[in-house]
Amino acid sequence: MAMNLPSSRGKGRRAPMADINVTPLVDVMLVLLIIFMVTAPLLTTGVPVNLPDSRAKALDQEQEPVQVALDAGGKIFVNDNEVSASILPDVLAEIAAAGNAENPRQVFLRADRALDYGEVMRVMGELNRAGLNRVALVTVGSEAR
């Protein structure tokens, strides 16, 4: 009498499937890529400034920084609002008073490369006098050009 027992040689057994279907993963990643490519240009707003090149790395930020920009004509903008040079110290003093002593406000200074160095230093001096000492100069990375 013969019995039909499963043999250890693997006859009649199916091998386990070890393939992963990556098509849905690729589809989702391509959709996300398209979404980011469409929305990224919409996130950059502000005053058009021709920034100088730099190889410095991006900064980590805890809170929304104050944006100070100087365009090619020498106009000063604080958070996309034009400010005259005469009231700039008052505006910066209000911003400095709104921050706390433990975590002072970060300031991003963007200046057009065609500006005179003295104009940029005048604004930096006003930032220093107001107590806003965490100033980062915004540049364009060298690989962006």
Rank of each mutant, 00 (worst) to 15 (best):
A93G: 06
M124V: 06
V31W: 09
P65H: 01
D112I: 12
V66P: 01
N81V: 13
P89E: 04
F77N: 01
R110G: 07
Q61D: 06
V123M: 01
D60W: 07
E82V: 10
G46T: 08
L88Q: 12
P52W: 09
L32Q: 05
V38Q: 03
D27I: 09
N79H: 06
F77H: 13
K75H: 15
V120Y: 05
D112M: 08
V22Y: 00
N100I: 14
E119R: 12
P65W: 00
N79W: 00
E94M: 11
G99I: 06
Q63L: 08
N79C: 02
A72T: 08
V68R: 03
F77T: 07
L42S: 07
D80L: 04
G73Q: 10
G74A: 03
A111D: 05
A58P: 04
V49S: 05
L30P: 04
M17W: 11
V22G: 02
P104I: 05
E82Q: 15
A56K: 15
L115Q: 07
Q106D: 07
L51Y: 12
L109Y: 08
E62R: 12
D19C: 08
E64L: 10
E64N: 12
R129F: 03
A72W: 01
N50W: 03
G125E: 00
Q61R: 13
M29K: 09
V91H: 03
L88A: 02
L51S: 04
N100R: 07
S54G: 12
Q63G: 06
A101S: 12
T39W: 14
S8M: 11
R14M: 06
L115V: 03
E126M: 13
N103M: 03
L25Q: 10
G118I: 01
M37C: 11
D19G: 07
L43W: 11
L127I: 09
Y117I: 01
N79G: 03
T45M: 04
A130T: 06
A56E: 05
V22K: 04
G125Q: 05
G99E: 15
A93D: 07
A58M: 05
R110N: 00
I34L: 15
V47C: 00
T39R: 13
S8A: 13
V78M: 03
D116H: 11
V123Y: 01
P41E: 04
P41G: 07
D80H: 05
N21K: 02
Q106W: 03
I34K: 12
P48Y: 11
L51Q: 07
R122H: 10
N103F: 02
V123Q: 11
T23F: 00
N81Q: 10
P24M: 09
R14S: 15
R55K: 15
A101N: 09
G131D: 00
G125K: 02
R55T: 11
P41L: 12
V26P: 02
G118Q: 11
V66K: 03
L30D: 06
D71E: 08
D19V: 12
K57V: 10
I76E: 04
K75I: 03
E94L: 06
G125P: 00
A56I: 04
D90I: 14
